[in-house]
Design a protein around this nucleic acid. Structure first.
Lengths: 191, 191
DNA sequence: AAGTGTAGTGAACGATCGTTCGCCAGTCAA
DNA sequence: TTGACTGGCGAACGATCGTTCACTACACTT
């Protein structure tokens, strides 16, 4: 039923507060239902719509569509136009950017060698640590014992590091190229 | 023990995958521990360090520091530094970027009118809602009932909206200028 | 060598979990 | 009016949960 929508809303609120899903009985209390079996039925319905899933060990977890926000939320927030392109299926920026926390490090950008890629000095990039990268990726390589942020490109069968700034030279590493990780995200704070 | 750190890493990875915390027994399997009581002890330790908390109904949930990320120095801090002490710089992206959550909205950038400011289409800007802004700020204004992302400038005593792209014209609003909010942050996800 | 503290083990226990089933009330179409 | 459908209720059930406790193994002190 369409009532499921408001139930889902409350679940989303709970999740936003606690970052986990409640048990069936606390769900019942939360949603105003008086029986766990009602909750079970609701959960079954939400699972069918991909709002909820279960882990391999049968624990309840948010599904693919769980983080969809209602258009009404935006409208309520005072948006003048019903532009759906302002929608975000996102709760926190961290979870949006970082998929493998244990392998991810934040690095403050120094210098303007990647300025044409929209990466400014002072920006913070999220770097996922791994040795392999694809051509075209923005990578953090280790050159002269320092982090270097560049495009990874291939030139005559060799990997090179290309800055996004014509004032800087392409770096052609002698011997092997030590790659620290791949840039998966960027964060900039203004003011 | 410093081993707790690697346990926490695995917990964070699990959470990033599933968006929930596992039960003690699946934790044991995940971490290579053979007893739930080991997990209980670990959880108790992590709770003391504010990495984990419990909800009012005694469910385990991520704590305040659960989403902290390592902020590496540009000079080779030696990320694989295993035993290096606990005192690394930590940063929580959301707290870093969003200071007033209730007043802040995320908006996806459309068009390339701010490209020279390093704001690309598809990027997400964090907008703090308020009517007042300073000259030089990047603001979200409402023009013709649509959002517009531009620099706020002053020209002959009048406010104007200046794009960061020579291909676009400066917008000189007729009458008053309606400002939706000020851009306080930018987020970009690669790949 | 004895003592102290710190993970980790393994078993037991009551509490809580999510499931299941029968039943009820309202809605809607035939 | 009947019958099918839907959402919710309440109770019962076995499975799993997290806790607790006694014990082992190892690393440091002193």
């Amino acid at each position: 039923m369409s009532n499921d929508r408001s139930y889902l809303d409350q679940l989303q609120d709970y999740y936003a507060q606690h970052r986990i899903l409640p048990s069936y009985s606390t769900m019942a209390g939360l949603l105003g239902l008086k029986s766990k079996s009602s909750v079970a039925a609701l959960v079954a319905r939400l699972k069918l719509q991909d709002f909820l899933e279960v882990t391999p060990d049968k624990r309840l977890k948010p599904g693919g569509r769980f983080f969809e926000r209602l258009l009404a939320d935006s409208v309520r927030a005072g948006f003048p136009s019903p532009a759906n392109d302002t929608q975000h299926d996102m709760l926190t920026i961290d979870e949006y950017l970082v998929e493998r926390p244990s392998q991810t490090v934040l690095v403050t950008v120094k210098g303007d060698s990647m300025i044409d890629a929209g990466i400014h000095p002072g920006d913070i990039v999220a770097v996922e640590k791994k040795q392999s990268a694809n051509v075209g990726d923005i990578v953090v390589a280790i050159v002269d014992n320092e982090f270097t942020l560049k495009y990874l490109e291939r030139e005559k069968g060799q990997f090179v590091l290309r800055p996004a700034n014509p004032a800087y030279p392409i770096i052609r590493p002698t011997g092997s190229l030590e790659i620290f990780g791949v840039v998966v995200g960027l964060v900039r704070k203004y003011k």
